[in-house]
Amino acid sequence: MHLALFLIFGALAVASAVNLVAQRHPINSALSLVVVMGSLAVLYLLLGAEFVAAIQVIVYAGAIMVLFIFVIMLLNAGEEERTRGSRVAMAVGIPGLIVLAGALMVSLSERNPAARDRVPVGAMFGPPVEVGRALFRQFLLPFEVTSILILIAIMGAVLLARYHAPHPPVARALDPDEAAELLEIAGTHGSATGARERARQEVRR
């Protein structure tokens, strides 16, 4: 049963990650990333990490991905265009993917004697009570430091995303069309001072 659940949700996660790479529109990539995160939450539940599974759904699939989708829609991001560089990246990237995945699998799984053991799945290891106790006793200082980190991140995000209004133009050179217009105005009103006054108004406008 657990093996079946692992295979189903692991395959779902890998398929969605492949879809993330294959899709060209960022909103499709974002939605497949949500599926990856949801199936990873199920895997965390299988491993008995209930707290992490809940946080995964609430923080990752909820908050962070909503932020991503919000920005994609705000910036009206379209499909990405192909460039010459992207073909080179594809030619390097896909063999690189295979090499990297193989190397990671060998180093993590084959050479690791612990990896041959089996995980007692769903043994209710690490209930939220224990996690909270460890977080607020053993790891209290890192916890407080992360709160400062989040404060800095909030201020940085506000500062970076703030709209800087462009400076109003101080002076502007007259182009020939405007000069002709001014001459016309001067002709109708007959006086040079009146024309200058009009010209100032025009420029200001």
Partner: peptide
């Protein structure tokens, strides 16, 4: 159970 290597 599921082997740890599957997860890794």
């Amino acid at each position: 159970t599921v082997p740890l290597s599957y997860y890794l």
